[in-house]
Design a protein around this nucleic acid. Structure first.
Length: 450
RNA sequence: CGGGUCGUAGCUCAGUUGGUUAGAGCGCCAGUUUGUGGCACUGGAGGCCGGGGGUUCGAAUCCCCUCGAUCCGCCCA
């Protein structure tokens, strides 16, 4: 990662002996370096495969947008209220770093008017100005998928199944799915009244720290973690009792579909989600293996009014976002989806000046072999150590003898049985090198690949 | 933004009631006779003890401030 510290600038160059200022990543941000970064690449690969099979195409939207795009997420939410990275550019345009992607996807839809259904997935960094803690960062990363242009409950099922499929692909087991329905505007209004009057009646039983929410954001009372509040919430009216016939039927069909696909789930009447735009289906996957404060690994729902609110045609939509950092935390907790080993297949050792290492690695790579080498003309011993640590199957040794004979010494480093005691080496003419390597790999695959 | 815990080598950590040149393990580099890895041994590089101020003859150690990390509230992926 960090290399050798640079030698201090000589007074002659700098004219000043003061140590240069050093920097680190801003609060709540992180570098992602090998080997850990290999996990992200693999994770993305697994998602891409699942999304591709389900007919979702990749959508990339800007990392910053006109701040108005995000205002529709919810006036009362912290996400737009106080957590946005907003700024004026040099021409006084009021912009913001994106805190999430659904609004951007809807903006893109309104801007381009693609044919429907529009099925897209996205991936990338998002930004929220919050104090970091376990599973919550100022720059975090999400993968998500959205289907716009259809209100068909089977689209909801497809979206949820995609997330479930992905969890399965990376080996996550303990991520129970919770679903609920927020109904439509009418049910939300009717339910809002019922909930408010109930909460006002029980205000004294609500934890004092939650009381202000009764006025400000009554829905959020429902998912409070405080014991007293949770007790009140448990007896609160349920939104599913206020669903219109159409939304109730929609919800029923979604559940039926999940059952049909074997996606186990549970209805959670207290699942309200934080963002204002949700209508009808809402859902969350929570990591049961995590005992951190943030255990929602994937959240989503339907947002039938959002495209219109962003100046587009009335267009229904459903989607989810999943937090990569949290997902990886959950993988750690379950002990699944390890960091993939990145290893060379062949390591070239050159004690005759380096030209052979330069040329051979290039030649091997061009025929598809993962080949690597040491630099700086190190001793043979050092190069052998590097070869061993690289995990390579085979070392190719080129010293002065080999150069004179136009040959290469092929030195296997692993045994098919997994041991590493070494096998007899052989010196072959350079012209026969690829064939010899092929035989060795075949042998290893045949005997070792049980 | 409020609260808890914590900052000593690249990493994980020792460092006794304040007392001389701040240590270990791992990692890294080099060697242990001829051109050969893992194991073992030897040596080496690498620390403004997070930063600033204070108390003291003397501070990694005590006090204050600050910055950062981490966790919780809150919020959310």
């Amino acid at each position: 990662m960090s290399g050798t510290p640079p030698t201090p600038a000589s007074p002659a160059d700098s004219g000043d002996a003061a140590a240069p200022k050093s920097f680190r990543t801003p609060i709540g941000t992180h570098d992602l370096a090998p080997p850990e970064s290999g996990r992200w690449v693999a994770l993305l690969g697994a998602f891409i495969a699942a999304a591709d099979r389900a007919g979702f195409g990749y959508l990339q939207t800007p990392i910053f947008e006109d701040i108005g795009v995000f205002a529709r997420i919810g006036e009362g939410t912290d996400v737009v209220g106080k957590e946005m990275y907003e700024f004026l550019d040099r021409s006084d345009r009021h912009l913001a770093l994106r805190p999430e992607c659904t609004a951007s996807v809807c903006r893109a839809f309104a801007q381009h008017r693609p044919a429907t259904p529009w099925k897209v997935w996205y991936q990338g960094p998002f930004f929220r100005y919050e104090a970091p803690q376990a599973g919550r960062y100022r720059q975090f990363h999400q993968i998500g998928a959205e289907t716009l242009g259809t209100d068909d409950p089977d689209a909801d099922v497809e979206i949820i199944a995609l997330a479930a499929e992905f969890f399965g692909a990376i080996g996550l087991q303990r991520v129970p799915l919770l679903v609920n329905s927020m109904g439509d505007a009418d049910t939300r209004a009717a339910y809002g009244e019922a909930l408010s009057s109930y909460l006002q009646r029980r205000a004294d039983d609500v934890d004092p720290k939650d009381r202000d929410k009764i006025e400000r954001h009554p829905l959020r009372i429902l998912d409070s973690k405080r014991e007293a509040t949770a007790a009140v919430a448990a007896e609160a009216p349920r939104i599913t009792d206020y669903l219109t016939q159409a939304t109730a039927a929609h919800f029923e069909r979604v559940r039926e579909g999940l059952n049909a696909l074997g996606v186990s789930h549970e209805v959670d009447h207290k699942l309200v989600r934080g963002l204002d735009y949700y209508t009808r289906t809402t859902f969350e996957f929570r990591a049961a293996s995590l005992d951190t404060a943030q255990d929602t690994v994937c959240g989503g729902g339907r947002y039938n009014g959002l495209v219109e609110a962003l100046g587009g045609p009335p267009t229904p939509g459903i989607g989810f976002a999943l937090g990569i950092e949290r997902l990886l935390l959950a993988c750690d907790a379950e002990g699944v989806f390890d960091i993939p080993a990145q290893r060379a297949e062949v390591w070239v050792i050159d004690t005759a000046g380096g030209a052979a290492a330069r040329d051979l690695t290039h030649e091997l790579r061009s025929v598809g072999i993962r080949a690597d080498r040491a630099f700086d003309d190190r001793s043979m011993r050092a190069q052998m150590r590097a070869a061993d640590r690289s995990g390579a199957e085979v070392a190719l040794i080129v010293g002065t003898d080999e150069v004179d004979a136009a040959a290469v010494t092929v030195r296997p480093l692993r045994r098919p049985d997994g041991g590493d005691a070494g096998m007899p080496q052989q010196t072959v003419p350079r012209a026969e090198l690829l064939g010899t390597l092929q035989r060795i790999f075949d042998e290893l695959n045949a005997e070792g690949g049980t």
